[in-house]
Simulated scan of single mutants.
Amino acid sequence: MPTSTAPTALWNWSVEAPVAAPDVYRALAAVLDRPVLPLAGADPELLLDDVVLCDVWRRPGLFGMSVDCYRAPADVGETGVVAGFARLIGERCLLPDDTADPGRFLLITPEGVVRPVHLDVADTDDGEVLSNLRFCTASDPWCREWARCDQSRRAPDSVLPPYVVA
């Protein structure tokens, strides 16, 4: 019986537009160069080490398509993977950033550009709802006064050049 001995990570991000779950699995498998299977019905103890499990679901609001990856490779950078994924599906993606601010994210374009943004987050019976997308910038008084933005590896107004993903 196969068991996983490789270190793994849990990844989650959101996609701006709806994408069919099989298309998510295919795009993610292409970026990772490893099998990606739906989480539903999978028995992790019966899977080979390199299989990534993925759950795709919808919630209301902006970036309402959620992608959760289980058994993701721990030695691969999530931001680069999401950049490659965004390129393949042609949609912007939203990744949690490195601050404790629940409304600060990294916006990743299909071109691979990464920049910090803020969204309003509301907890509802249907899950977390995101709204009011705005760039994290020092010219915004609210952002300028929020100390956690300055503590991030991605400071306000930072724009990372496109990730080069094969």
Rank of each mutant, 00 (worst) to 15 (best):
T3D: 06
T5I: 00
T5W: 04
T5K: 08
A6G: 08
P7Q: 04
W13N: 13
V15T: 00
E16C: 07
E16F: 10
P18K: 14
V19Y: 08
A20Y: 08
P22R: 05
D23I: 10
D23V: 10
V24K: 14
Y25G: 04
R26K: 09
A27T: 15
A27E: 14
L28E: 11
A29G: 02
A29I: 02
R34C: 09
L37N: 07
L37T: 06
P38K: 14
P38R: 02
P38W: 14
L39F: 12
L39N: 12
A42G: 12
D43E: 09
D43M: 09
P44W: 05
E45Q: 14
L47Q: 14
D50K: 13
V51R: 03
V52S: 13
L53G: 05
L53D: 01
C54R: 08
D55E: 14
D55Y: 06
V56Q: 08
W57M: 04
P60A: 15
P60Q: 10
L62W: 07
F63Q: 05
G64S: 04
G64R: 09
M65D: 04
S66T: 06
C69D: 05
Y70I: 05
Y70S: 11
Y70K: 11
R71I: 11
A72M: 02
A72E: 01
A72P: 03
P73V: 15
A74Y: 00
D75H: 11
D75A: 09
G77Y: 04
E78V: 15
T79D: 11
G80P: 01
A86F: 03
R87S: 15
L88G: 06
I89K: 11
I89L: 07
G90F: 07
R92F: 13
R92L: 09
R92S: 12
L94K: 14
L94C: 00
L95C: 03
P96V: 08
P96R: 05
P96A: 06
D97H: 05
D98S: 03
T99N: 07
P102F: 12
R104S: 02
R104D: 09
L106T: 02
I108N: 01
T109W: 14
P110R: 03
V113I: 12
V113Q: 12
V114A: 07
H118N: 11
L119W: 02
L119I: 04
D120T: 14
D120A: 15
D120H: 13
D123A: 11
T124I: 08
L130N: 01
L130D: 10
N132H: 15
N132S: 14
R134C: 13
F135T: 05
F135D: 11
T137A: 04
T137L: 00
T137S: 03
D140L: 04
P141Y: 02
C143M: 00
C143Y: 07
C143P: 03
R144I: 01
C149Y: 08
D150T: 07
Q151A: 15
S152P: 03
A155R: 06
D157C: 00
V159G: 01
P162R: 10
V165F: 06
V165W: 00
V165T: 14
V165K: 03
